[in-house]
Design a protein around this nucleic acid. Structure first.
Lengths: 188, 188
DNA sequence: ATGGCTCTAGGTCAATCGTCCTACGAGGGG
DNA sequence: CCCCTCGTAGGACGATTGACCTAGAGCCAT
């Protein structure tokens, strides 16, 4: 098997395990077991656990960019695109109830570990932030676009934490509806 | 030294360390070092690490109840009391920027660890939820009091995650102001 | 002072962690 | 056929983890 396929398998398994059980709680043995490799063989593909985390973050950044591009292709209006982001807490409801937001929980964990890769993880947030900011500019609110983007981000993080804590689907739907109404007041 | 004082010292140190570095990332040696005790002696006071977590959660529950009682004594109106909760993200701004919300981050971590004490940690959220619900009932919104309480909780969690990720004080102040205006629309 | 209780120190345990090393098998090009 | 590289397996390392044990110091009551 070519090395690139194995490497991608490792990144995919690590991505899933980091999300489900956290970075620190995921061991080399866990990832190796998920992929079906021996532990020791790992260092042929990644020289350290941090390197795997780095690759996982890069993969998430790339996947996020693809998702944003798809949203831009599918949703014609800026407001519709913003709603695609808002509705992600419904789209990924099952995972969020079980594991929270992949971006928020990773950033929170790395902050507590004082991990060197915290800044890299923050780029995931920044990617969404700047994309949302762009949508608000297109919506005609250039002067407060960044503040509105941050508000939408805070919404998603708050809903994710509460959904994870209480497993309440009706709550998620109510908050999405509230956000939809809020967004209407900013449509031209 | 009486055992009760040592026990309280252990709980206080564990509380702080769990908040700053997370539950799993905090070892017995860390707590023992913070208190100035030997590692082995630990099992005289707590038979397991879970028992310490249990005691920490109980201590947080008690401290939270005291705080809520103080808010009720200091703020005469329900709206004023709710604002005391909202403004906690400003009051504890420094800690939140560094470590996030103590309740939210603990719950998130325990969920990922599939820890048996997750339900206990959830009681911290429930305590705030029911207190906020009571305030909204007093405000004259009995029929949607719980939904409004959940919305306020989600606000605080969202702001905490974003404040931790971006260290942006102006953002926190904007969101608190936004919440103040929102609350005004619910005042009789 | 003697016995018993509270509290502590320090060592030990097996398990697991991330890391590293070496040996080996498969396979293609010379 | 040999050699070289790629990819893998599995063991070993030092450190650290949570957990447990025992010996004894301090003190109070009898």
């Amino acid at each position: 098997m070519p090395a690139v396929a194995t490497r991608e398998q490792i990144v995919a398994a690590a991505d899933r395990l980091f999300y489900h059980h956290g970075y620190e709680h995921t061991s080399f043995a866990d990832i190796a077991g998920a992929v079906g490799l021996s532990r020791g063989n790992f260092y042929y593909h990644f020289k350290s656990k941090d390197a795997i985390l780095d690759a996982v973050i890069d993969a998430r950044l790339a996947a996020t960019r693809r998702m944003l591009e798809q949203w831009e292709a599918e949703a014609p209006t800026p407001a519709g695109r913003i709603m695609r982001y808002v509705e992600i807490v419904l789209t990924n409801r099952a995972d969020i109830q079980d594991y929270g937001c992949p971006v928020g929980t990773l950033t929170t964990e790395l902050a507590k570990l004082e991990h060197a890769m915290l800044g890299q993880a923050g780029r995931l947030f920044t990617l969404f932030r700047e994309w949302l900011r762009e949508q608000f500019i297109l919506l005609g609110h250039a002067e407060q676009a960044d503040e509105l983007a941050m508000h939408v981000l805070a919404f998603s993080q708050g809903v994710a934490v509460m959904a994870n804590a209480f497993h309440d689907e009706a709550f998620i739907r109510r908050e999405v509806d509230r956000m939809r109404q809020w967004l209407h007041t900013y449509e031209r």
